[in-house]
Amino acid sequence: MTDKVNEAFLVIMVICLALLGLVTFFMIFLAVRYRRGKNPNPEDISGSLPLEITWTVVPAILVFIMFWYGWVNFKAMRTVPEKAFNVNVTARMWSWSFEYPDGFKTTTLMVPAGRPVNLDIISEDVLHSLFIPAFKIKEDAVPGMHTRLWFTAPAPGEYTIFCSEYCGQGHSSMISKVVAMTEKDFSTWYQTHGDKEAVGKAVPDVPKLLDEHGCLDCHTTDGSELTGPSFKGIYGRKIVVISRGKERALTVDDAYLLSSVLYPDKDIVKGYEDIMPSFKDELSEKELAAIINYLKELK
């Protein structure tokens, strides 16, 4: 991808710099050459048809060349090779979710290096845009509409993913990454990740989970306020929530925490907005239990 963008960029830049140089040179040259001190008597020249034709036709040809480079390279960037590896992407305020052909989901995009990857992108809430600066590509995530984007990671490594369509307060922290692995590493990962037993044995790292799923974009762990209530001391807190338009008071317990992660729009804490997405299909039971335990301890 990068070379396609770079090629078009180079062609345009060369033409632009030449034009800028020409304009600036003649502006300064004529102003100095015909300054009043040296040329007190102006000659009244009102135009020249051949010149007008020249600087209409030549730029017209130049812009056509630039247009052409832009278009053919774009076309190549839009034609997905057959046998591309498909990943479904869901964007939401303010995290990414990547779903693989076997239904497994991650928060970072795991791909085999050297193999084309095709992304099928959708948004759950507002407009977002999936942007991978290293590959110089992006495409908006639009609610109610599937968009697509493909790339080939050139080598194993990590490449940042930004959101480049403004989507609210968490816009600049809606960051993830592409993790490109060798074919071998990738197929090992791909075959074992679904292994419930292997996953089940691992102890979930809660701070990492909270970070990767974007929880910390809205909820702090130190008591300060962002978009959502802070996690600090949340367990046992007495709060007022609005459920189906009616206010009610409750004390935060296990059941409430679980329900607000799985069905966040059921009870909205008074004074906050109804913007949290559901994590129903994102977190395993084990992970949920670990998170709740973690919150209990966060005094």
Partner: peptide, 23 residues
């Protein structure tokens, strides 16, 4: 204005736009 106009050509070319759009 010349710099503004000429960099506008980078935006108008679809291939380069895909990189610099929204940045």
């Amino acid at each position: 204005f010349s710099i503004g106009g000429l960099t506008g050509l980078v935006n108008s070319a679809v291939a380069t736009n895909v990189h610099i759009h929204g940045t």
